[in-house]
Nucleic acid binder design. Structure first.
Lengths: 156, 156
DNA sequence: CTAATTTTAGTGTCATAACACGTTAAATTA
DNA sequence: TAATTTAACGTGTTATGACACTAAAATTAG
């Protein structure tokens, strides 16, 4: 029980089962995040940049106001303005103003941005499928259910 | 299935079950990390700082060389030197040189550092127990096992 | 219909993180 | 034993993140 986690952290024991679960979530997340990050950096993207592009691709050819982008991110970043600035510099997204609500700064992914995502897609997919090699379908569903229980109480 | 995750990300569907699991790990991690971070900031600590202190407390009254600290961290930080610098400034840790291996820069937690951890401990504990309210003991073990399967293949 | 409040973005500043390089000491090899 | 390789740190630089503040537009309250 927990031998793999112990090896990772080079610890011999944990304070509680709850601590062990929490640590396992952190370590797994770090593990997958790092792998994901390595893939994206091959395409010149940081993880937050990739996430913004992914969100924008979902509504293409429409755009999203900044606030919407933040609320859809896995890890909401306070500094989306500058993330978009950098994506703009690479011409992966473009900005335009909403006519209905003049406060809104809309961002749309460009053709170039979509092409980049498409190019990276197989590798991202392969990474997600990496999980396949270790878990059965039933296990994946169980895992998802258990994780959702943890943060579910605070999702409205 | 996955309704909670869909709400969090304001998405209506996922590409695959594997993607869903990965996203769930990320979201759960973000959720717990943020809560953890909020607790630690009350005590003037960042998450990496807390982790370094926690590791050093484990070997007190001995110290650890920098490289050992990194390898025991949940999220190995490349910049541990400066993290330690800041902890030094607050007199929460102290440095000394190893006599056996003169390359090693050893760090030891101070009394003040231990006192700070002890003070924060109940709240950290409460946070870990937060998971208790949503999962049974059996579920916690299942969850830990499944998570370890994901990253286990690369732990030696 | 006006004034106060809320929402949304952007900017300036400071702290932190990431990355590459240089230095020293230990370990290994010739 | 000398030369080379490896390991461990620290530092300088650049990029990114966090946070507070400002401005503009929309919404709500009176």
């Amino acid at each position: 029980m927990g031998d793999i986690l112990k090896k990772w952290l080079k610890q011999t024991k944990f304070e509680s089962l709850d601590q062990e679960v929490a640590l396992n979530v952190f370590v797994t997340s770090y593990f997958l995040r790092t792998k994901h990050d390595e893939v994206m950096s091959k395409y010149g993207l940081t993880l937050p940049q990739y996430n913004v592009l992914r969100i924008l691709k979902g509504v293409y050819p429409n755009g999203h106001p900044r606030c919407d982008i933040i609320s859809r991110m896995i890890e909401p970043a306070p500094d989306v303005t500058r993330i978009i600035d950098r994506l703009m510099k690479d011409k992966l997204v473009e900005r335009f103003n909403s006519t209905e609500d003049k406060r809104l700064s809309m961002t749309r992914i460009t053709e170039k941005g979509i092409k980049l995502l498409d190019k990276a897609h197989p590798e991202v997919h392969a990474l997600e499928n990496y999980i396949s090699s270790t878990l059965s379908n039933t296990e994946k569903k169980t895992l998802s259910d258990l994780l959702e229980k943890i943060y579910g109480s605070e999702v409205k």
